[in-house]
Each structure stands twice: as C-alpha cells, then as structure tokens.
C-alpha cells in the first residue's frame, strides 16, 4: 500500500428516513429512532485526510441531524488500519509511517462513528 494513502479515511454516511410519528417530548433521539421503521434514503462518501478527521466530521453530522425526527444518519469511517473495530489514531499512524514498508501488514477497519466524542482510550494504540 502506498504510504501516502494510509492516513486517508473515507467517511461513509447513510441517511435513513421514517414517517413522522407522535413522540413523547424530550425523548432522546437514541430511544426514538430505535422504535421506528427506517428506510435508506441515500448515502454519501467523503474522503477525509485522517481517521481522527473522519470521526470528527461524522460525529458533527450526527449531532446536526439528531434534532430531526423523520431522518437519522449512520456514519462509518473506512480506514486502512485499525483493530477491526476502531481505526488507528492519527499520531500512531504517523509514527508507523516513519518506518513504513510496502510489506507492512495492515488491518483495514470499519469504525462506527458514535454520538459521543471519540474516547481517549480509542485514540490510543489500536494495535495489540
């Protein structure tokens, strides 16, 4: 793999829609959306410069769409290396790249972007 593309991470956004329903006031979106029937409306892919940037962008998109009752979003970061669940963070990747060889084993990973900010533990070295 070309070392210059290792940092590059694709943000995949899936937009779902559902008919409006009567919902109790102040019910969190996480609970509201779990009871609805959703239909995939569209998807979009955005190439981001790094896993951290990808997560930040996805996280903000989720926050912006959360107040909408008839629409929800799922965001995923498709990165070149991770532990199978979480992408390797920027700093660790940059360190890896210093001694990067073409034969280096990487674990391509799909990380689901959450509503919360990325936890510090998730930013630590993802590789065992």
């Amino acid at each position: 793999m070309d070392p210059s593309t290792v940092l590059q991470t694709t943000l995949l956004l899936l937009y779902f829609i559902a008919p409006p329903t009567h919902e109790p006031k102040d019910e969190p979106k996480a609970i509201r959306e779990s009871k609805n029937i959703w239909t995939l409306q569209s998807t979009s892919q955005v190439v981001t410069p790094s896993p951290d940037a990808c997560y930040a962008l996805g996280n903000q998109m989720i926050a912006k769409i959360d107040p909408v009752a008839t629409m929800t979003v799922r965001a995923y970061c498709l990165c070149a290396d991770g532990n199978g669940k979480i992408c390797t963070d920027d700093n660790t990747l940059k360190t890896m790249m210093k001694s990067f060889t073409v034969d280096q084993k990487l674990t391509p990973t799909v990380e689901a972007v959450g509503r919360t900010k990325r936890l510090p533990s998730a930013s630590g070295p993802a590789k065992q």
């Binding site: 779902f16 779990s34 959703w38 239909t39 972007v113 959450g114 509503r115």
Partner: peptide, 19 residues
Amino acid sequence: DVVSLPVGGEGFNGNRATI
C-alpha cells in the same frame, strides 16, 4: 419485529421495531 437500522457507534441504541 424488524431491524431497519445498521449498528451505530457509541450512543446509538439497537433498532427493533414491531410491525
């Protein structure tokens, strides 16, 4: 019951709606 949303990250609940 039907699942109509994929698994999300931290802060997302599982989706299971009854039809």
